[in-house]
Design a protein around this nucleic acid. Structure first.
Lengths: 240, 240
DNA sequence: AAAATATTTAATCATTTGATTAAAAAATTT
DNA sequence: AAATTTTTTAATCAAATGATTAAATATTTT
């Protein structure tokens, strides 16, 4: 009975609050004291904590504190923890995918040239957002169906083009034939995995954060070298 | 005040319960109805849920239900959610590391031979436990210092041997010189990353679980091929 | 089989946590 | 500047959740 009461309240009251906000939001400028509006501060705090600790381990109170605002304000602006997470997750996921798909679908570059650009750009990007891959992969695993549509939308445009290109390059003899699935797993794995396994890798090798970053900088040229080696190796997987 | 009361209670009462259990546990045989003892059933349920959803997202009630026992029993046997998690995490982590370190530290095999064995054994192992890598990596990120000792203990034995071997192989000209850090990141990345990114990869490529497993079976021979290609490539990173 | 010990459970507790409310403060409009 | 609207907060609520207790049941020991 308590459950029913709560639900009816939330459906009745909160949308009104939401509308009030929306009606005014566009006109409002960043607040006095800080350099960001309260809404932006909440989003930034949420992005930091969600990305660092995941959805389940993040408390709305911690977000509010990190943002320097009151807890109620979070619900006033974003309606619920889920809604706020949805926004952050959508942005994070888009960035995570875009770093790959942009360079992959773009111009008339060769496979090797594309690989080169993807690796360099993605390592730079992930150096600034090292927690992103583990966060995205983890939240997707926790709720795969939820992201099915998003993956399709974000990836579909570049997929067919890429598949065609890598098959033709294989046929032409410019590279050894390789299953595109394997190729992309190698490219992303060599680039992204060190960030995902960073805590272990740093502990095992006893490296500082700066050393890790230097290590990733080295990989900006090494991974493309290795990709070329792989594409010219005697490995001959069937091109499905 | 309520807090103090609770703490004193827990310190006073529960250890007694724990001792009672321990005193008898060794003598007890698996229960009547099922084929596992209640304690084992709880551990199995905990392993499944923790590994699938992570610590924060797993409810003790869900573990109890999955195990088919009462919630209180979980606390009776394992004292707390944290303690139970600690046990599961230790076992999972050990398995995760062992798959690599065993083959790496063992015999007088060459680097290439070791890589070959690691990849084949690890892919077989992870095919049976596909959620393990993401779980381990994620929980470590959430609390890196907590696992520092464990990583050291588990990894230290094989580290120096491996470093020496790969440097000497490089000097001897049997392989091109390569930073061991890069080498291990490549080896593990090419092997483990597909499991970590599995939900995305399967969605992008539209593959079923069986197809994914077949894909990983292919990699049992392909990854060693690529490792050989990398070790024979024109990439010449400094051997730090 | 009686006594002692171990196991299991239902009921309950205390805290945490997401969410709401009502009222104060600030900003904007009139 | 008065009225209106928007923003912010302190206080509070209800549900979820980890944990405990006391009693019942089963098992082992004597």
């Amino acid at each position: 009975m308590a459950v029913k009461a709560k639900k009816s309240i939330s459906k009745k009251v909160a949308p009104a609050a939401g509308k009030r906000k929306v009606a005014k939001k566009k006109v409002v400028v960043p607040k006095g004291g800080s350099d960001l509006s309260a809404e932006e501060k909440i989003k930034e705090a949420a992005r930091k904590l969600f990305t660092q600790k995941g959805f389940a381990a993040t408390r709305t109170r911690d977000i509010a504190q990190e943002a320097g605002i009151n807890l109620a304000l979070l619900n006033y602006y974003f309606r619920s923890k889920e809604k706020l997470f949805e926004i952050i997750m959508a942005e994070n996921f888009k960035q995570f995918i875009r770093g790959i798909s942009v360079n992959l679908s773009d111009e008339r570059a060769t496979i090797v040239e594309k690989a080169d650009r993807i690796v360099k750009a993605y390592i730079d990007f992930l150096t600034l957002h090292p927690d992103l891959p583990l966060f995205v992969l983890n939240e997707i695993r926790g709720n795969p169906s939820r992201f099915a549509k998003r993956i399709d939308e974000e990836v579909a445009p570049m997929r067919t083009l890429f598949l065609k290109q890598i098959r033709e390059a294989g046929k032409d003899g410019r590279i050894l034939p390789i299953d595109p699935f394997h190729f992309i797993a190698n490219l992303i794995g060599l680039t992204v995995f060190p960030f995902v396994a960073r805590p272990i890798l740093q502990r095992v090798t006893g490296t500082t954060d700066e050393q890790f970053n230097a290590f990733m900088q080295e990989r900006k040229t090494l991974v493309p070298d290795w990709i070329r080696a792989i594409l010219g190796s005697k490995a001959l997987p069937a091109t499905k």
